[in-house]
Design a protein around this nucleic acid. Structure first.
Length: 273
DNA sequence: ACATTGACCTGGGAGC
DNA sequence: TGCTCCCAGGTCAATG
């Protein structure tokens, strides 16, 4: 569910509550997430001090003096900062109680998310070490896209959503960026030229930055760490607008499926190469 | 090396 | 009201 802007919003939201806090207890109600929640975190995190909260791709990294938690929210996960004593929530799988009387609560109806533990350098973790660059980093350039795309024929949309090429871009923002860059989502990546690739990078960065500014996109489930919705949905120009007129040319917005994911595009503005 | 499909889950909405 | 079917913001593992 959440993409990079939503994860970034959550990280910023929980950071001030968690930083320098001591963990008093970890409660695991449901260890069966995408991968089992390691039971050892109950012992390891007891009395651990939370040092830092950061993000890599869509992973939230909670670093402590004993090791790091690697958290992914999958499609439906939420991380909430709540009072330690709070009304029970459906699908509240893991709760991390803090010395200050608050708790970090992991809620995830679909259980596609995960909570993992490492005492090693986080960037060496199996799931993180193969990730591509951050889309907002300066090494993500038009030249980088061309270099990665040269030997591939996949559709540009799938390419953008491959976290080993560039991480953090999910279905919504891939759709939005291609509309802004006027690229047809089915265009084989090896046909994208350098000037188009440069425009695409610029538009990806623009849409992600704007979404972060507006607290992310809530289609249905997404909530920030305070349980509030993001405001970027109303700013979406193409995603979810099947059969509506294109805001540029008034053509009817098309909806297709690519790899079991919804794609929206304007047949006139986004010309096939 | 690259491309495609299945798998993991629950819940909401549409249609009958 | 209740059933079935389809859809959903992710991404790894297995298969071709």
């Amino acid at each position: 569910m959440p993409e990079l802007p939503e994860i970034e919003t959550i990280c910023r939201g929980i950071a001030s509550s968690l930083k320098n806090q001591k963990v008093t207890e970890v409660i695991i109600n449901q260890p069966k997430l995408r991968w089992p929640v390691p039971k050892i975190i109950q012992a390891k995190l007891k009395n651990a001090k939370i040092l830092n909260i950061s993000r890599r791709s869509k992973y939230i990294i909670l670093s402590t003096d004993k090791g790091s938690l690697i958290i992914h929210l999958g499609m439906s996960g939420q991380l909430l900062v709540l009072p330690k004593v709070h009304p029970s929530i459906k699908h509240e799988h893991v709760i991390i109680n803090l010395e200050c009387g608050k708790a970090l609560s992991f809620v995830d109806p679909r259980r596609f998310g995960c909570i993992l533990w490492t005492e090693d350098d986080v960037s060496k973790h199996k799931l993180l070490k193969t990730l591509g660059p951050e889309p907002l980093a300066k090494e993500f350039t038009g030249e980088y896209i061309i270099a990665k795309a040269r030997t591939k024929k996949v559709a540009i949309k799938q390419f953008l959503m491959d976290s080993h090429i560039v991480c953090g871009i999910g279905n919504i923002y891939a759709n939005e960026a291609m509309f802004l860059a006027k690229i047809h989502p089915k265009t084989p990546v090896n046909l994208i030229n350098l000037s188009k690739a440069k425009i695409l990078v610029k538009k990806i960065q623009q849409v992600l930055t704007r979404a972060i500014k507006h607290g992310g996109t809530t289609l249905r489930d997404y909530r920030n760490s305070e349980g509030k919705k993001g405001n970027f949905k109303e700013k979406l120009k193409i995603y979810g607008r099947k059969n509506e007129p294109c805001i540029i040319c008034q053509s009817t917005i098309q909806h297709i499926r690519q790899n079991q994911r919804s794609t929206y595009y304007c047949p006139k503005c986004q010309t096939p190469s």
